Simulated scan of single mutants.
Amino acid sequence: MDVPLEPSAYTRVLKLASTPSWNEFSQIALIAGAGILLVGLMGFIIGVTMGIIPGV
Rank of each mutant, 00 (worst) to 15 (best):
D2V: 13
D2W: 07
P4Q: 01
P4F: 02
P4M: 00
L5V: 12
P7E: 00
S8I: 15
S8C: 11
S8F: 14
S8T: 13
A9Y: 13
Y10I: 01
T11N: 04
T11Y: 04
R12V: 08
V13P: 01
V13H: 00
V13Y: 00
V13A: 08
L14T: 05
L14I: 09
K15N: 13
A17L: 11
A17E: 03
A17T: 05
A17G: 00
T19R: 12
T19Q: 10
P20W: 03
S21I: 03
S21C: 04
W22L: 11
W22C: 09
F25Y: 09
F25K: 05
F25I: 05
F25M: 10
I28G: 06
I28R: 15
I28L: 15
I28F: 12
I31H: 03
I31A: 06
A32T: 12
A32G: 03
A32R: 12
G33P: 00
G33C: 05
A34F: 08
A34H: 09
A34S: 15
A34V: 12
G35Q: 06
I36H: 03
I36E: 01
L37E: 11
L37D: 06
L37T: 10
L38V: 13
L38G: 06
V39D: 00
G40D: 07
G40F: 09
M42A: 15
M42N: 04
F44T: 14
I45P: 00
I45Y: 01
I46T: 11
I46D: 05
T49R: 15
M50S: 11
M50G: 06
I52W: 08
I53S: 03
P54N: 09
G55S: 11
G55Q: 07
G55H: 06
V56P: 02
